[in-house]
């Protein structure tokens, strides 16, 4: 690991930004070209040219639909979710100084499951509430409960008590997982339970343009906040008290950032389900690659998360022909060895 690279000049920062944007663009294009069925790259490019530049190539309308309405929005939503979850995980790891923190630590995943199950299995909301909205409401409810519990448990007395937040998160997650099991065993039959499981493991197949218009701004706000608070996050390196003595309004930063990550995660979970691994491991991978300073770490984490999730989604559609695997399976199957490699290499270099 290079602990002391020269401070990047304006030009080299621009260069890195351009490289990142190029990588993201290439990943989205790959996600649009590769899918369940083979469509020639030329057809993909012609379709994109028609749609974006108003060209007039002749393309089969089914192919147009698949490329423009399925694959492209799916790749963009995957990128946003990957970025959003990875950045949320990074922020929580830094704020709580816990390497095992992930975006679901605060009960969000458990709450989303409960919300989804309450709507689909127990029939709450009588059809007026979609599973996504149910998941979002569940996630936010669970997070608010965890936050209140953490506060009541004394997280507010000194700046030393980040442990309470983690413990409150565990308690909240257990409670909501139990609620989910309760609802399923009380009223579900096997076919429904399967649908729920499928969704819980994460599923990008329903991503369409309206999801893009939701996911893109949320991911940008999440990343933007992280960059805005980059120096404050750096200051948490030696703990919350140390951050306070460095002039960081600790409470404000904690409330704003934890609240924001919860919101970003809740939105992503409600769009695609609980995709594991990304929020936990991508930030660590990014730290190995670009170091611990959040000014660089934030954008790098977002970029790696975005590219990783697009790649995982492409694999989930192609690894078993004619069948789509849950993306959560792929993120762990591919991500765990990749992370192991980074760990080993990082150790050798430091």
């Amino acid at each position: 690991m290079n602990f002391c690279s020269a401070r990047p000049t304006r030009a080299s920062r621009l260069g890195r930004g351009a490289m990142g944007a190029a990588a993201l663009f290439a990943a989205v294009l790959a996600g649009t070209c590769i899918g369940e069925t083979p469509i020639p790259v030329l057809t993909v490019l012609q379709t994109l040219a028609n749609k974006i530049f108003g060209a007039a190539h002749v393309v089969d309308p089914i192919d147009v639909g698949i490329i423009w309405n399925y694959r492209l929005p799916r790749a963009i939503v995957a990128a946003c979710c990957g970025a959003g979850l990875a950045v949320s995980g990074m922020v929580l790891q830094s704020l709580l100084r816990n390497a095992l923190a992930d975006p679901y630590l605060l009960g969000i995943s458990a709450g989303a499951s409960t919300g989804a199950v309450a709507v689909t299995v127990a029939g709450l909301g009588a059809g007026a509430v979609s599973m996504s909205l149910g998941a979002f409401i569940g996630a936010v409810t669970a997070f608010l409960m965890v936050a209140l519990l953490a506060r009541a448990a004394g997280g507010g007395v000194t700046l030393r008590g980040t442990g309470q937040i983690v413990l409150a998160g565990i308690a909240g997650s257990q409670l909501f997982n139990a609620l989910t099991s309760f609802i399923i065993t009380k009223s579900a039959n096997a076919e429904q339970a399967r649908g729920i499981m499928f969704w819980l493991l994460g599923n990008l197949s329903g991503a369409r343009w309206p999801d893009v218009w939701l996911a893109v701004p949320v991911a940008i706000v999440g990343l933007g906040a992280c960059i805005w608070y980059a120096r404050a996050l750096d200051a948490f390196s030696f703990g919350a008290e140390s951050a306070a003595s460095l002039g960081v309004p600790v409470r404000v930063v904690q409330v704003v950032l934890i609240g924001l990550t919860a919101l970003v995660t809740a939105v992503m979970v409600s769009i695609v389900g609980s995709i594991g691994f990304v929020g936990l491991v991508i930030p660590h991978a990014a730290r190995f690659l670009v170091g611990v300073r959040h000014g660089r770490l934030g954008p790098a984490t977002a970029l790696i998360g975005a590219v990783f999730l697009i790649a995982a989604d492409v694999l989930s559609r192609t690894i078993v022909p004619g069948q789509v695997l849950p993306i959560g399976v792929i993120t762990a199957l591919v991500g765990a060895p990749a992370f192991a490699l980074i760990l080993v290499r990082g150790r050798r270099r430091s």
Partner: peptide, 24 residues
Amino acid sequence: FLEQQAETTEAISVRDAVELGRTP
């Protein structure tokens, strides 16, 4: 303010740590 035994498990360099002093 220097607290007692402020520690970190992060892979932070000496310069990173000292630069934190510029935060305010």
